[in-house]
């Protein structure tokens, strides 16, 4: 579903953020990307739907080359759901309108159809009652669940999560993770940048560990948690799992 091969990215000639990253995500797979901050994991996931450009290498999403200038990027992006660390709901639109905007303007769905789809997804994330409210009137956890619903409204073939729980108060993390776990169990293809190792243990198929712009470890979940091969991954795991 996602094929990343030999991707390099520089912010300046001397500052390389991604070094020869190669991996893939197959259909129905849940891949967790972790690593210390500044390791390039958010940058890598943003390269997948071309929110960040990269200088060499290739990324294919469902067979379409992301870095091909001829690719219809808006169309490709509309099939790739993305959830951000800071939710990024549109503050001037009601919750339901946040869910309908791209359905109507990008997919060309009729208003009624988009509304019905939106309400159905809000019900799924447990926020049907909030449909007529504005984002600023919701808690962080609720906003992130709306953001997930907004991405799902586009019927994505794959979902990207960029640290979806990092900006949340601790008591709101689980309500968001619950939605993501359900999604994973339904067979959604997911690439998730997160520090939530509990989530990774529960639903991930594979774990990718990144450090200083490199993919240091790319292993099945049990291998990664059981016997990480690299020192850096071991150190990282011992730090975040010691509490």
């Amino acid at each position: 579903m996602i094929e990343i091969s030999h991707v390099n990215k520089w912010y300046s000639p001397t500052f390389q953020v991604l070094t020869d990253c190669t991996t893939n995500v197959t259909k129905g797979e849940v891949v967790v990307v972790c690593g210390p901050s500044g390791s390039g994991k958010s940058t890598l996931i943003k390269c997948v739907n071309a929110l960040e450009p990269f200088q060499s290498g290739d990324i294919l999403v469902d067979g379409t080359k992301v870095n091909d200038p001829k690719t219809d990027l808006p169309k490709l992006r509309s099939r790739v759901g993305m959830v951000f660390q800071h939710f990024e709901l549109f503050p001037h639109l009601k919750i339901i309108d946040n869910l309908c905007l791209a359905q109507e303007k990008v997919l060309g769905r009729g208003h009624d159809k988009a509304q019905a789809k939106g309400m159905q997804l809000l019900e799924r994330v447990g926020l049907k009652e909030q449909a007529q409210k504005f984002p600023a009137q919701l808690s962080g956890g609720q906003q992130q669940r709306v953001a997930i619903a907004r991405a799902l409204a586009m019927d994505p073939i794959v979902m990207l999560f960029d640290e979806p729980t990092s900006a949340l108060d601790p008591e709101m993390v689980s309500e968001v993770l619950d939605v993501m776990v359900d999604l994973a169990r339904e067979g959604m293809t997911m690439m998730v940048v997160t520090h939530e190792m509990g989530f990774a243990r529960k639903v991930a198929n594979r774990v990718i560990f990144m450090d200083r712009g490199e993919i240091v470890e790319d292993a099945a979940k049990d291998d990664f948690f059981g016997k990480p091969r690299s020192d850096r991954a071991q150190k990282f795991l011992s730090k975040i799992l010691s509490h």
Binding site: L51, L76, M82, F90, L101, A102
Partner: peptide
Amino acid sequence: QRMAATALGL
């Protein structure tokens, strides 16, 4: 905000 709009395909 710009990223979210772009990511939705706008």
